[in-house]
């Protein structure tokens, strides 16, 4: 029976240390999900992510087909390739979900986000903020003598860059919509 005896230190790994066969690099993917526009559908999607420990970097949702009662949810998520595959499979089997597409791998796509940024200040800082806003093609949607609210649209990276520039110039408030995305072409 010696051959059956347990080797010392045999328990380093288990099913709880899921080894990822496809690679351990964490990737960011943008998923576009068409759902029935019914009460609680967003809670289902979010509950799946929280319940199974997946990440949500950003999430946008709005009705896109009033007649068909459909909404588009755009989710930016990060995970290893195996986790991304699981997220897609788990979403796809949910009853109110019509389709799941991974814009990151399905071909070229366009991604845009809108942000509103409030900057308070006087003098040179105020002039500099205005000048940079011009470079980034941000619009002024509200102004007082000591503040601006800028509206900027672009990729999340562009918005990140603009926000970082505004911080030393008196950024006081920030609202971002999260990413909306569509595949390019037909």
């Amino acid at each position: 029976m010696n051959a059956l005896a347990l080797k010392k230190g045999a328990s380093k790994k288990s099913a709880y240390d899921l080894k990822n066969p496809l690679g351990d690099e964490v990737e960011t993917h943008t998923l576009s999900v068409i759902v029935d526009n019914e009460s609680g559908v967003l809670a289902r999607v979010i509950g799946l992510f929280s319940g199974r420990g997946y990440n949500i970097d950003s999430l946008t949702v709005a009705e896109t087909d009033h007649e068909g009662h459909l909404s588009r949810v755009t989710i930016v998520t990060t995970g290893t390739p195996a986790v991304i595959e699981q997220i897609k499979a788990q979403l796809d089997r949910m009853v109110p979900i019509h389709s799941v597409s991974d814009l990151t791998v399905d071909g070229p796509s366009v991604e845009r986000e809108l942000a509103m940024i409030k900057v308070s200040g006087k003098g040179d800082k105020r002039v500099e903020a205005m000048r940079l806003a011009d470079i980034f093609r941000a619009n002024v949607v509200d102004t007082t003598l000591t503040s601006f609210v800028f509206e900027i649209t672009g990729t999340p990276e562009k918005i990140d860059a603009f926000v970082e520039l505004m911080r030393p110039l008196g950024l006081t408030d920030l609202a971002r919509t999260g990413v909306a995305a569509l595949p390019r072409g037909l």
């Binding site: 029976m1 059956l4 347990l6 010392k8 045999a10 328990s11 380093k12 288990s14």
Partner: peptide, 24 residues
């Protein structure tokens, strides 16, 4: 035992001392 492989079974008459160690 939790954390062991299929060919690392504890059998009825084997010693169980220290069978589950570490992370298991």
């Amino acid at each position: 035992p939790s954390g062991a492989a299929h060919n690392e079974m504890i059998m009825g008459d084997a010693s169980t001392e220290g069978a589950i160690t570490g992370k298991g």
